[in-house]
Measured scan of single mutants.
Amino acid sequence: SAVVMEEGSPGEVPVLVEPPGLEDVEAALGMDRRTDAYSRSSSVSSQEEKSLHAEELVGRGIPIERVVSSEGGRPSVDLSFQPSQPLSKSSSSPELQTLQDILGDPGDKADVGRLSPEVKARSQSGTLDGESAAWSASGEDSRGQPEGPLPSSSPRSPSGLRPRGYTISDSAPSRRGKRVERDALKSRATASNAEKVPGINPSFVFLQLYHSPFFGDESNKPILLPNESQSFERSVQLLDQIPSYDTHKIAVLYVGEGQSNSELAILSNEHGSYRYTEFLTGLGRLIELKDCQPDKVYLGGLDVCGEDGQFTYCWHDDIMQAVFHIATLMPTKDVDKHRCDKKRHLGNDFVSIVYNDSGEDFKLGTIKGQFNFVHVIVTPLDYECNLVSLQCRKDMEGLVDTSVAKIVSDRNLPFVARQMALHANMASQVHHSRSNPTDIYPSKWIARLRHIKRLRQRICEEAAYSNPSLPLVHPPSHSKAPAQTPAEPTPGYEVGQRKRLISSVEDFTEFV
């Protein structure tokens, strides 16, 4: 048969007729292969192709491409040299491709048809291009793949890379869960390890502090508590009631339409708007009261037996805890006409967050109470924005700035309102402590230090009264110190430094 060459192609190359033996071998191979691939376009007849790359030819070592076609129900084999250009295909004639002069020997084609199974398996396991790669995943090629499931790999992101949580363990979102698992493993320790309690022994800490320079003076030496005195035992138990972190309780009120001037209507609300609910979820963490331990979680007086509701929101960081007394989460009882059960919590909070959804101005004093010092007013606006402002009593104007209003988005509203309420509550605590000038409020841990110092002074006084020969370590507060001759004046800087060093040991009130 003659071949018409394309323009620009090399000279004529004689194409030899395939021997009958080659056709029989390739026909047997075509019957084993699956003929249901995917359909081509209507211009080209339905056909199945599979590209198999052999590394070497037997005796020649030339890479070839073998295409199996099922045109007219008769499979045909096409061998081509890759750099050459194939002729145009037609549905009426068999596929013809040019070969190099080196394939002119018909014996070479017979060798190609009689490829060993080793070469076929190696060509099938190679990388296939384009559409033949999808075909190689079918059941027909499963014989050339190794048996057994593939090893499982770690989760992959859409980009093909490992997620960040699997790369950096410290930033993994499941870090707290692993800590819980470690605690569970520790709890399952053997009885021999049960006595080993991690941490620092208080006796060891005391020993280090006792021999430090801070205890060089007799006034700073630790003293032993009497065991037989019940009054001192009660004082030590009272110390446990003062937490070592700051605590805040903040009221949250929802004002519906037409309720801006009605205290009873505001306290009777059992739910609010959708934006109000989203605002609550951002204030803190939802907790169930019956599962809380009052000595570990500050509840601000809420009952854990269901008297004040089942849930509330709280927030904490390293040095403070805040609980929100939310009116809509507290039960509304029919027998309580004046809502006294709610007001006994909300009316005693220094700061209230008022979500004013009424469309009218909310005035300070609508919720009557002796300790309502500051109101954080949240007014929802259009386009997911809110107006946040402050209202306070006249005696609080020096501590709280009420002249600045803020426009905040719904997303950042819980954070801004919480921070403003916490700052206002700190100012309210300082303002409330002014009624007792001898006990200015600095912080909870300073209050613990003052309680310890008062307890020490009482013990020293009782020891001096029981044994008059012992001198008083600290003179009583009601006694007057003996007159001392004025010492020589020293520079102001040295006096300030000495006073600062003494105050650092005794108390921190002056620095606050």
Rank of each mutant, 00 (worst) to 15 (best):
R450G: 10
T312A: 12
I326V: 14
Y245Q: 06
Q230N: 08
K406Q: 12
E218K: 09
D246K: 04
D303C: 05
I326N: 03
H474T: 14
C314F: 10
R339F: 15
E228S: 07
S235T: 14
S433K: 06
G496R: 09
E288M: 08
H474V: 14
V376I: 13
S273W: 01
P294S: 10
N412C: 07
V505K: 14
G365M: 05
A481P: 11
K290L: 04
N436D: 09
V236E: 09
S244N: 14
K406M: 15
A447E: 15
P489Q: 09
P442S: 06
A481V: 13
K342W: 05
S443I: 15
V404E: 07
C392H: 04
Y355D: 00
S435N: 14
E263W: 03
S268L: 05
V408S: 02
Y313M: 15
P486E: 09
P482S: 13
E218L: 13
V354Y: 02
Q321H: 14
V408T: 03
T438L: 07
Y493Q: 15
S219L: 08
L289D: 15
K480L: 12
C305G: 14
L413D: 00
T277Q: 09
D395G: 08
A417K: 00
F362I: 07
L239V: 08
S358W: 00
D401E: 06
R344W: 09
Y276W: 03
A447N: 11
D401S: 05
N269L: 01
Y276P: 01
Q321G: 05
I319Q: 06
C340R: 15
T438I: 07
S435G: 09
S409F: 01
R434Y: 08
T277R: 15
K343D: 06
T281S: 15
S229C: 10
M320P: 03
H474E: 15
R418Q: 04
A421N: 00
A483D: 14
P491D: 12
R448C: 07
E510M: 09
M396S: 02
G284T: 06
Y313H: 05
E488W: 10
F350V: 02
Q321P: 04
Y493L: 12
Q321D: 10
T438D: 14
L364R: 14
K337Q: 15
E360P: 02
S358P: 00
E218I: 10
F324T: 02
F350N: 03
L224F: 13
S409Y: 01
D439S: 09
L302A: 15
A421T: 01
C314I: 15
A447D: 13
V505R: 15
E397D: 04
F324Q: 02
K221N: 15
V416T: 04
Q429A: 10
T312R: 07
G359V: 02
K221A: 15
E257H: 07
Y465K: 07
F279E: 01
Q237L: 08
N386C: 06
E360C: 09
F232V: 14
